[in-house]
Design a binder for these strands. Structure first.
Lengths: 165, 165
DNA sequence: TATTGTTATACTCTATAACTATA
DNA sequence: TATAGTTATAGAGTATAACAATA
């Protein structure tokens, strides 16, 4: 099923190029709407993890998010400094830190989730409900065929390239 | 048209998150398939520009690609070193460099284009022709609603964030 | 004085690996 | 000896701005 349009037109007709552009756009857009809350997408990811699996260690988070431990430390540092997350010593293994959301942390997570949903709706504002579902379905199939881990962003797996020109 | 699925499921149902992930995937995938040719997506972008508008200055390219001049210099340096692109002094304005493809440069560009088309087809291998057109249409509409320049990758416009978690 | 291209510098983000404290 | 977490360091990629040559 080859594409054989003239080179000039080709990029606007390229799924790969459009995905790369839109992915960047979605990414930086989400960073922007999160900024007023004083957090970045990575912090949101950490909050999400702690909310879902409270009491887990940073090690567990590193594996779940497929992120090197040293990055976890920095993000948890930020969040702890802002009193959104707590590190508690685990009495049975004093090497490990068990992570917990504070009340403020939970509130922040909920606000961030609202912002995320609003962002999502804005992004899709020009699509009908049916089109949006269709797009979601096609994207999910593409993701599956590329063997993607469901809730994990691949930024955490490899160096970010700059995308097809 | 709000989305109100449970938080855990939400990411896999988020157009923004999927776009960000797939965009990264497309981007690094394209970088990988281009690597055997010894060039990066940005080099491909430069070759494409020079092919389309031979004799233009680096300044013109900086504007067309919306990239700072200092980045152009580095990429053109790479390509000139490999004898794929030539800088010629413009006799009427000796400040400017007119850019030309060498025969090897043109061959490289054509090979890269073939690689790009093959990559695109692989990416869409699990979609029918109709689905692929549908996806292309939806992505183009999203891109249009986000006010995107057609042939330009936004990596060249701003810092790359890391995407919704 | 403005413009083209170049170079130098500084900044951000990241992974790697050394290090500590516990086990 | 191994593991959880931390810190230090170094590398890539980038924008900014100073700079030289030409207009």
């Amino acid at each position: 099923m080859p594409i054989d349009t003239p080179p000039g037109e080709l990029l606007a007709r390229s799924v790969g190029f459009l995905l790369s552009k839109l992915g960047f756009c979605a990414s930086s857009g989400f960073t922007a709407v999160l900024a007023p809350l004083g957090i970045q997408p990575q912090h949101f990811g950490v909050l999400r993890f702690v909310d879902a699996m409270e009491g887990q260690s940073q090690q567990a988070m590193a594996e779940a998010l497929q992120m090197p431990p040293s990055r976890i430390v920095a993000f948890v540092d930020d969040l702890e400094e802002r009193k959104l997350v707590e590190r508690r010593r685990n009495p049975s293994d004093r090497r490990a830190h068990a992570l917990y959301l504070t009340a403020e942390g939970r509130a922040m997570f909920e606000r961030a989730m609202e912002v995320a949903i609003e962002f999502e709706n804005d992004l899709c504002a020009n699509l009908t409900r049916a089109e949006r579902e269709q797009l979601l379905d096609l994207l999910r199939r593409l993701a599956a065929s590329q063997g993607m881990a469901l809730g994990i962003h691949p930024t955490h797996l490899a160096e970010r390239g700059s995308g097809p020109e």
